[in-house]
Simulated assay, not measured.
Amino acid sequence: MTSTPFSGNATPVLVLSSLDEWLPESSMQLIARELNHSETVFVRRRLNCTPNTYDIRFFTPYAEEPFCGHGILGAAHALHLSTGLTTFEFVTAMGIDTRASVSTTSQTWANDEDTVSVSMHFPCSPVVARLQPSLDVKTKFAAALGLDEVEILQIGMNDLMDIVLELNSEVDFSAENMAIDAVALLKASPPGTRSQVITSSWAFDDDVDFAKRVFAYGSEDQATGSTYCALVPYWGEKLQKAELKALQPSWRGGSSLVRWDQNTSRIEIIAESVKTIDGRIKTGREQMRGDGPRL
């Protein structure tokens, strides 16, 4: 979610449309472990559907992930470069339907070097549950963050199992100012938690409506998309806004323009993407089928 190479959230995308079926899950997991990014994305054109409809799957180095927003951003960019199409429908393994459209300022079909803008439409996943017992949870998270408990204003969870911790807006939790122990956050979380989302209304930039940092499985996710499913309705309701500017002040950094449609309970994320690497993965036939996926 950036226009600057080697910032944002690096996302390998493997296009498997030349294969008749998915690679074995064990092979996709091995590839994700070898590439060792927060998520590695696999896309394959859905049979008997329109040419712009794709199944999409996401793997961390350790397990398959149900949903990944920056993975959809990267997939839309990669597919635009390989097909010339500008709109895509993605269906996740959980059956979540998402849409993405690609635009470029230079021409209708972007070059490899072009930065593209991608508009993504996701369903909302609002923060609905407060964690109980709240006092014990707040104590654990305050200790993990090195903060006084009073600085944590609210703790909740959504149906994607993201924990959302709203901090006082005067707490500068940017990576430059605050080192956060991702493993300690993981240990403070209830079993089954997908990610820990630190957020506030961010008093340090008048052009920003809210900020966030995101941690998952004991490490930081540098620029995320799926957590907006919780944060856009969360901050939209608090700030009484349908359009918001979001900042992710991690070391690599990210930002997005986000919109909330209360009538359809969906959000739109507008973010930029830039391509940095192109290549092929080569391995034995016992672990890969076909001629090998494009990276």
Rank of each mutant, 00 (worst) to 15 (best):
L147K: 13
A129R: 15
F59A: 02
L147M: 08
A78G: 04
D114W: 02
L79I: 03
H80A: 12
I163Q: 09
E34V: 01
A76R: 11
Q154T: 02
T60S: 15
C124L: 09
A63Q: 09
L35G: 06
D159W: 00
C124S: 14
Y54P: 01
G69N: 01
P51R: 12
G71D: 01
T40L: 03
V116G: 10
T50M: 14
P126H: 06
M161G: 00
E149D: 07
F42W: 09
I56Q: 07
S119W: 00
H77K: 15
T98H: 06
A129D: 12
A100K: 13
Q132E: 15
T92R: 05
C49N: 14
I163N: 11
F141N: 12
G95Y: 04
S134I: 02
G156K: 04
V41E: 00
G84H: 08
T139W: 01
G69S: 02
M161V: 03
A144G: 05
P126S: 08
A78R: 08
T139R: 13
V128P: 03
S101L: 04
L153G: 01
L135I: 12
V43H: 08
M120C: 01
K138D: 02
T105F: 06
T98Q: 10
L153S: 02
I96T: 15
V43P: 01
L35S: 07
I56V: 14
T86K: 14
P123F: 09
F90H: 08
F141A: 09
H77C: 09
P61L: 03
L73D: 01
D162Q: 13
A93T: 14
H37C: 13
A76C: 09
M94N: 09
H37G: 06
S101N: 06
I96V: 14
T60A: 15
F42C: 13
D114C: 12
L145P: 08
L79N: 04
V128H: 06
D136R: 05
L160I: 00
T104Q: 08
Q132R: 04
D136V: 13
S38R: 14
T50H: 15
T92G: 13
T139E: 11
P123R: 12
T105S: 15
L147V: 10
L73G: 03
E64H: 03
L79K: 05
V91E: 14
T87Q: 13
T115F: 03
R99L: 13
N111C: 07
F88K: 14
L135H: 13
N158I: 03
L81Y: 01
